[in-house]
Simulated assay, not measured.
Amino acid sequence: MIRHLVLFKLNEGVERDDPRVVEGVRAFRALGGQIDELRFWECDWNITDRPIAYDFAINSAVEDTDALKRYLEHPAHQAGVALWREFATWVIADYEF
């Protein structure tokens, strides 16, 4: 199994209630039910307020590197990424467990 973690930081001046952000969150929350390769899916807002904290997180899992590739290339995932590109930056980590 591969754990796929993503941490998002909203761009300067962008707030959670920005309509673009609301749409992006809605798109990512729906992915768990749209992409068969996902074995585990959760995402939500960070609840702490620290200077080094990121704003939003995705914690997911897939079977193997082929499944990860299919997930990353899936049209629903690509559509969500395109939305988030407009208002945030992110870091990822993928590891086997």
Rank of each mutant, 00 (worst) to 15 (best):
I2P: 04
L5K: 12
V6K: 08
V6N: 10
V6G: 06
F8D: 05
K9G: 03
K9W: 02
K9D: 04
L10I: 04
E12T: 15
D18M: 14
D18E: 14
P19Q: 07
V21C: 00
R26L: 06
R26D: 10
A27D: 11
A27P: 06
R29N: 07
A30H: 06
I35G: 11
E37N: 00
E37W: 01
E37D: 10
E37V: 01
R39S: 12
W41I: 11
C43N: 04
W45M: 10
I52F: 15
A53G: 14
Y54P: 03
Y54W: 10
D55L: 15
I58C: 02
N59L: 05
N59A: 01
S60F: 04
V62S: 06
D64G: 06
T65R: 13
T65F: 02
T65P: 03
L68K: 14
L68I: 15
L68C: 15
E73G: 09
H74A: 07
H74F: 13
P75R: 03
P75C: 01
H77A: 10
G80Q: 02
A82F: 11
A82V: 07
W84C: 01
R85M: 07
F87S: 04
A88T: 01
A88S: 11
A88C: 06
V91P: 14
A93G: 08
A93P: 01
D94M: 09
Y95S: 11
